[in-house]
Amino acid sequence: MKNLEELRKLREKAQKEIQLRSKDARIKVVVGMGTSGIAAGAREVLKTFINEINQKNLTDVIVTQTGEKGMSSMEPIVEIHEEKKPVIVYGDMNPSKVKKVVEEHIVNGKAVDDYLISMEEK
């Protein structure tokens, strides 16, 4: 360890591993992982979200999962929760759609109308 600068670089790298434990995220991505969601490919959708968010180094986004929402025909379903904004619900998701959602919605802040099922006021 030579100096503080080197330590801080190391810290930045290490922080990624524990960022889940920091209290507040800007955006929460919730993937429906009920039985029908999983059957329709929710696991791949979830993994793609994690990969994309990592690659883009989006440290203020967390990905989590929830159970059945009851709209089996629209699975895999994904909700995007953001502070003080309505919850955006996307349906019939797949890995390529995920990439678009990350790019346009999470990074640029514009919901992807084509995949939208509903907007739910909190």
């Binding site: 503080l4 330590l7 810290r11 591993e17």
Partner: peptide, 26 residues
């Protein structure tokens, strides 16, 4: 209860040894 006590990396991630570095160099 929030970091792995056996991982130096996790300690560094929460600002570990920065106080020592600051004291020694600044």
């Amino acid at each position: 209860g929030s970091i792995d006590p056996e991982s130096l990396d996790e300690y560094i991630a929460v600002g570990g040894y920065e106080a020592l570095g600051k004291a020694l160099t600044e």
